[in-house]
Write a protein that binds this DNA or RNA. Structure first.
Length: 545
RNA sequence: GCGCCGGUAGCUCAGCUGGAUAGAGCAUCAGCCUUCUAAGCUGAGGGUCACUGGUUCGAAUCCAGUCCGGCGUGCCA
């Protein structure tokens, strides 16, 4: 690509084209058009006052072509320039891949920079459901992608164990505890958590404390609250661990109060006349920061609204001097971030460093029918249940294979399917097949040349596979820059498909030594791409299936 | 009402910094196992790209409007 840019820029200079910042090469949908094509001649039509086709011909006549690299260049259609590279050009790229091996796909664009990715961030009041699963898996994969392009990444979990929700949890646990062990008619709080897990907590609580917590006074409730928090956190962490997710920092909202950070934010806005008191509450003057309406940051009861700690927390992250700060949350939190960003901007921070990623909801379906998974209705389908049912690999892959902007339908019947219908197995199967070949060659002592001449890989299936392999680093970069793991997932399916076709048509064992050796090398390169790609997605790459 | 996301094949989704015949998987139909894993391969059918108008040599893609679905629009988080 770099090579193409160089020769084309030189030719454009020669024909007198100016300010060509729109020169780019794309892969035509139809491979008959070649490996790359450019529409630069069409775009120059106005400037040069000539027909696109004439310009295209001018460009071609002024190109200095290295016949080792470029096979041919043609003008087609309304003025496209199509470029076909030589087989040798591609096979030379392949040897690069083999040298890089497990590092193939990495780049340095983010090296020396730091990133903070905040995800999951569920308060310890319950169990994770599938929507949280999407958040967790996407966040973790975005973090992986950033690491692959060179960032030093901190994975962070933000939680609040002091708010009203925790009180509701404690009340709910207490009610279940009383119902189960003291008085079965004990009233359940109206806004309490109805999930079955609350009964489990109550049962475990009874095992630890027996009848000691019957009074329901402040001291009892605070012990119950702590017990519930630990119980939930342990479960949440265990579920995340099953998905191969481990976060570096667990940031407690409470520390913002203890360290005076909340106070500092309030002071700042008061001192700058951006906060005022009305109806006994403290309002943030967002209307002076470019937004529509002012909002309450401290209620008349003296408690802060979620906005205040959110602002203080993000200020804290900015103060930790990350080059990139990523927040990931579900569509239901969409309203929270414009206020936070506006407030930070008003405090003089560079909010361009903060990228807010919002993923749409997940619906779980089985046999075309929606499965309920709410934690309030009581009948719940947790993320943990899902992992136990279909496995961590399938959960991760299914939650990653769609753009975060779209509603994701998790098809439970398809996920359960241990067959060719399931896209995860398609990928893993390609990897396992390669490992099986490598095994067989080693175990049965088939002869293989160590550094074979790769230029014999000229047939269309081999060439097609090489071209797919070559794209891997740019796919990783693209997925990382757009924060979209699905781009990688889709790509890996294409690689697997190219491999399966190659595998079907090109035998290794039994071919001539030179051919067999070169194909063996191609298999190894493919294996690196699949293994590296799957590891970014956090999906295992089995050697046998 | 306003804001964000979406509306593309029977289903789930790509394609959206404008480009050549709109793609994939599943489903349907028809083929391929004496040879490295058939969880595989090959082929066929299937589309008014929600609708209307505009910009352009050219629109699924950009702009405006309309309709439909999801989420939000709290002194809940």
């Amino acid at each position: 690509m770099k090579y193409l840019f160089e020769v084309f820029s030189a030719a454009l200079d020669k024909i007198g084209a100016k300010d060509v910042d729109f020169l780019y090469f794309e892969e035509p949908k139809n491979i008959d058009f070649g490996d790359f094509s450019t529409n630069v001649a069409m775009k120059l039509s106005k400037q040069l006052k000539k027909s696109p086709i004439a310009i295209a011909n001018d460009i071609i006549n002024n190109l200095e072509i290295n016949p080792d690299k470029i096979f041919n260049i043609t003008v087609a259609g309304a003025g496209f320039i199509n470029i076909k590279l030589t087989e040798k050009f591609w096979t030379e790229l392949l040897s690069e891949v083999l040298i890089q091996g497990g590092n193939f796909g990495k780049s340095l664009v983010g090296s020396g920079k730091t990133a903070n990715v905040e995800y999951v961030s569920v308060n310890p009041t319950g169990l994770l459901h599938i929507g949280h699963g999407r958040n967790a898996v996407v966040g973790d994969t975005v973090a992986n992608l950033l690491e692959w392009i060179g960032y030093d990444v901190t994975r962070e979990y933000y939680f609040n164990n002091a708010g009203n929700q925790m009180k509701v949890l404690a009340d709910s646990i207490y009610a279940r505890y009383m119902q189960l062990f003291v008085d079965k008619d004990f009233p359940f709080p109206e806004d309490g958590y109805h999930g079955d897990y609350v009964k489990e907590i109550a049962t475990d609580l009874y095992k630890s404390f027996g009848d000691k917590l019957k009074t329901g006074d402040f001291q009892d409730l605070s012990q119950i609250r702590k017990f519930g928090e630990n119980w939930c956190f342990q479960k949440i962490k265990a579920t995340l661990e099953k998905l191969n997710i481990k976060q570096d920092v667990f940031f407690n909202e409470d520390s913002l109060y203890k360290d005076g950070k909340i106070k500092e934010v309030i002071e700042y806005f008061k001192n700058n006349n951006l906060a005022y008191e009305k109806d006994g509450a403290l309002w943030l003057a967002l209307s002076q920061m470019g937004l529509q309406e002012d909002r309450v940051i401290v209620k008349s009861s003296g408690e802060p609204t979620y906005r205040l700690p959110d602002i203080a927390y993000h200020r804290e992250k900015l103060e930790r001097k990350f080059d990139l700060i990523i927040d990931l949350f579900g569509a239901d939190h969409i309203a929270t971030y414009p206020d936070v960003l506006a407030a930070l901007k008003a405090m003089g921070y560079d909010t361009d460093k903060i990228k807010v990623l919002i993923h749409q909801f997940v619906t779980l379906t089985e046999n075309g029918e929606q499965v309920k998974m709410s934690k309030r209705t009581g009948k719940s389908y947790t993320l943990d249940d899902l992992i136990d049912e279909v496995g961590a690999d399938v959960v991760r892959f299914f939650l990653l294979m769609r753009s975060i902007n779209t509603h994701l339908e998790f098809d439970l019947s398809l996920a359960k399917e241990q067959s060719e219908k399931n896209p995860v197995f398609y990928l893993q199967y390609a990897h396992a097949r390669i490992c099986s070949i490598i095994d067989k060659i080693k175990n049965e002592n088939h002869q293989i040349i160590i550094n074979p001449d790769l230029s014999v890989l000229t047939n269309s299936d081999e060439q097609n596979l090489i071209k797919h392999i070559y794209k891997f680093p740019s796919i990783v970069l693209q997925a990382a820059n757009k924060f979209e793991p699905y781009i990688l997932a889709e790509y890996l399916k294409e690689v697997a498909s190219a491999f399966h076709t190659f595998y079907h048509n090109c035998r290794i064992i039994g071919s001539h030594l030179e051919i067999a050796s070169a194909r063996y090398a191609l298999c190894e390169a493919t294996r690196f791409v699949l293994a590296n790609g799957l590891s970014i997605l956090g999906v295992s790459a089995p050697e046998k299936m």
